[in-house]
Design a protein around this nucleic acid. Structure first.
Length: 131
RNA sequence: UGAGACGAUCGGGCAGUCGCCGCUAUUGAAUUAAUCGAUAGGGGAGGAAAGUCCGGGCUCCAAAGGGCAGGGUGCCAGAUAACGUCUGGGUAGCGAAAGCUAACAGCCAGUGCAGCAGAGAGUAUACCGCCGAUGGCCAAUCUUGUAUUGGAACAGGUAAGGGUGAAAGGGUGCGGUAAGAGCGCACCGCGCGGCUAGUAAUGGUUCGUGGCAUGGUAAACCUCACUCGGAGCAAGACCAAAUAGGUUCCUAUUGGCGCGGCCCGCGUUGGGAACGGGUAGGUUGCUUGAGCCUUAGAGUGAUUUAAGGCCUAGAUGAAUGAUUGCCGCCUUUCGAGGUGACAGAACCCGGCUUAUAGAUCGUCUCUUUUA
RNA sequence: CGGAGCGUAGCGCAGCCUGGUAGCGCACUUGCAUGGGGUGCAAGGGGUCGUGGGUUCAAAUCCCCCCGUUCCGA
């Protein structure tokens, strides 16, 4: 598989796919603005799903912007992500970042997800798994 | 040139690289279909895509005739598929003008409402004031009377003035009167009628007539005129797994259980088949349309007629992006930085409303200033 | 995407239909009762009625436009 294409198979399409990731996250990485949850699949390649809440970014333009940046970043980094199904969630404050900051942040998060799958810094322990 | 009014258009451009979503053509996976790829070509957010405030198309449901109730609209005429939209005209207000704004029908059909203040708030009223002619009261005078003069303000009259209020029942002047009053007259305003211009709203009038009402509120009930069935593409149509369940038939003279002493039989259960409903999911609806552009004709105009040309997003955990260079524009501390504002299609159109950096074009006005 | 509501004091709600005075409970402040607290009694403060227009003499209330927020419908 080439490293920079983004065809249909690498997206999470059904509610079932999302439920698996939310039900049991094998890895995660986060900052104040972005949270990534991941779950291993049997397909041999990584897939991406997006959740950008209307509450966090009021305007449709902002939501599209965030989703496009994440997708673009995933496209360039997907070969490193093995067979993870990733769901990227926005958090309040995501809309206040400009495009460049957002891009750098996500690029770093992929690396962190791979190197440190259980990934929290100890002081920022968040135990609740709701959503 | 400056200030301003109205209308229209645009909403960075070109090229390269890496991606995403439809379409068309060719082609591959044994073959048809479906599906999944490959290559090439061509397309891919807006003027508001927004708010969902109106109106239609389209779809299903209901009814199929009429009325009531309820909602909406509201100067007149026209445009339109339709409208609460638009155009033209009228009236009123604002502005120096170009122009702009107006839910702009009816409270002389009825019912209601108007707190506080104020004397009085709707077939007017009498607090202060004014008058007190007339009828009474008191005093003086001499002519002794149905007298004259003066006084008080009892009855009474009054709507000029003060005061209250958002609003006090035409205005000004003259006459008139005890004081006043449309009580009378003139002018202005108003109502009704006539004549006249206009399709009409409405305007004009050296015409006649009425003394003068007909106060405000209908985004109060209401009256009048016109109009409206309900829901919405998450509508609707089609295909249809797993699991559970329904109907019908077959199978077992050789299954189990129950009814029974036993057989037949019946019920239930097992196995199989068919049928219909239908969830997850999928397909469709889904983009050729009251479409756009150009020219010509009709009309003051909205708009419309004819001819020719064009095809211009169709996603569905939801595409339309990222990056590099040049040009253009803006800021600048001359190193450089930014690329804009409002904002992202979700069945489709016609409007309205709201948000909006900047740029361009056209028509028109002018109290001032310049030529 | 479509369709319904709701915004009033710090919090939860009345008042709106039928226009003139914004009220109730909890909370808050002060005083009294108690040695002190809780509790009780009495008094008091606090509201651009979400925003901006319009109708009206007068708008929380009637009518429009915006802004939040909640709930429905595969």
């Amino acid at each position: 598989m080439t490293s920079t294409v983004f065809p249909r198979q690498v997206r999470l399409l059904t509610a079932e796919d999302y439920r698996k990731v939310f039900g049991k996250a094998d890895a995660k990485a986060q900052t104040g603005q972005i949270l990534i949850l991941a779950h291993r699949n049997d397909l041999g390649y990584a897939r991406l799903g997006l959740v950008v809440a209307k509450k966090h970014a009021k305007r449709a333009v902002d939501r599209n912007e965030i989703k496009r940046m994440i997708r673009e970043s995933f496209r360039h980094n997907q070969s490193k992500l093995e067979n993870y199904d990733c769901v990227v969630l926005s958090r309040p404050g995501a809309k206040d970042l400009d495009k460049i900051q957002l891009r750098h942040m996500i690029d770093k998060l992929w690396t962190r997800l791979r190197q440190n799958p259980n990934g929290n810094r100890p002081r920022k322990k968040r135990t609740d798994q709701k959503n």
